[in-house]
Computed example of a mutant assay.
Amino acid sequence: MLSRVIFPTPNPLFITIMSMTSLSFSVIGLFEGLGKNFKYSKFSNFNVEKSTSKQNNTVCGRDGMLVVYIPAFLSAVAFSWLFPNVGLRFLLVKSALTIHFFKRILEVLFVHKYSGGMAVDTVIIITLGYFTTTSITIYALSLTQGFPEPPVDLKYPGVVLFLVGIVGNFYHHHLLSSLRTKNDNGYKVPKGGLFGLVTCPHYFFEILIFLGISFISQTLYTFASTISTICYLMGRSYATRRWYLTKFDDFPKDVKAIIPYVF
């Protein structure tokens, strides 16, 4: 079954090791759901005892997120320059990753509002994760050049998923940002869009983004990294829902974490 939707692995040892390594990070989603969160966003001050030493090991949220996204964006741009003409599928994957991280950078600069900082170690871990995943996603696909296409072609459904994810993710990020006025650093219960159904619709659409990229590339590594991403976002959305329930007495109990009516 997998052989019908995934390219054959040209370098079995390297790709298999990196795919299994990426898949193993799915456990981070479990830790997120249990409350062992990366210290950024609302969780940077949740159940964490502040001290002078801890505050000195943080950077402001905007700077931290720029550091997180810029290396991955530059990686996608660099691969576009190194491999300029290697087929439609490769062009679509490079373009999708470039667009995704360029959008992230623009949101950091012009859309998101920040109420706290990010721990330096969290910045380093997430930066390496995005950079490594982006680089290996493109590299793994480059290794398939000259190999027969999978019998089931998913690249066009992947483009649709990616575009829906990009638009939906941006829209819900905009709704989150509009909750705060210029001098307001507090949290409110989000309204509009899919926020009436799930706590984290922006994560739901982010899953669509990465599913779209994995459908376009159809490599073992990309599917493995996407599964890991889904597990992480599900764990984080579950933790976010629990956070809202503890902070807001009027938070609707029937609102799910990330998948409408399901989870």
Rank of each mutant, 00 (worst) to 15 (best):
E107L: 04
R62N: 07
F215A: 11
R4K: 11
F210Y: 11
N57F: 02
L82T: 00
V111N: 15
W243Y: 05
L128K: 05
C200I: 12
P190D: 11
I70F: 07
L92P: 05
K54Y: 02
L74H: 07
Y40W: 08
G196Y: 09
H172F: 10
Y187G: 03
G212W: 13
P157M: 15
V152D: 02
K50C: 06
C231V: 01
G116H: 09
T127S: 11
P10Q: 05
T134H: 10
T240P: 07
P71Y: 15
G168S: 02
P201H: 00
L208M: 14
V48G: 01
L220P: 01
N185P: 04
V164W: 12
R236H: 08
P148Y: 10
K253S: 15
V108P: 14
V111W: 14
S26I: 15
A96W: 04
L194E: 03
F25M: 13
K94C: 12
V68K: 05
K103A: 04
T16C: 10
D249R: 04
Y221F: 15
N185W: 15
T132I: 12
G33I: 03
T132D: 04
G235S: 09
T229Q: 14
Y69F: 07
S225C: 08
L74W: 09
T246M: 06
G33C: 08
I216C: 09
L128T: 08
G186W: 00
L141G: 11
K36M: 02
T9R: 15
G192V: 01
D249S: 13
E206A: 13
L179P: 01
L175W: 05
L197R: 13
I216L: 04
S24C: 10
P12H: 00
G165W: 02
G165Q: 01
Q55D: 08
L154W: 00
G158K: 00
F205E: 03
G116M: 03
V198P: 00
N185V: 10
D249C: 07
I166Y: 07
H173M: 07
S178M: 14
Y139S: 15
N169D: 05
A76H: 15
S53C: 02
Y261E: 12
G193T: 09
I17M: 04
I213L: 05
V67K: 11
I209N: 14
Y130N: 01
V255D: 06
L30N: 08
V189N: 06
I6F: 03
K256N: 10
R89V: 03
K39V: 00
F210H: 08
G158D: 02
F110M: 11
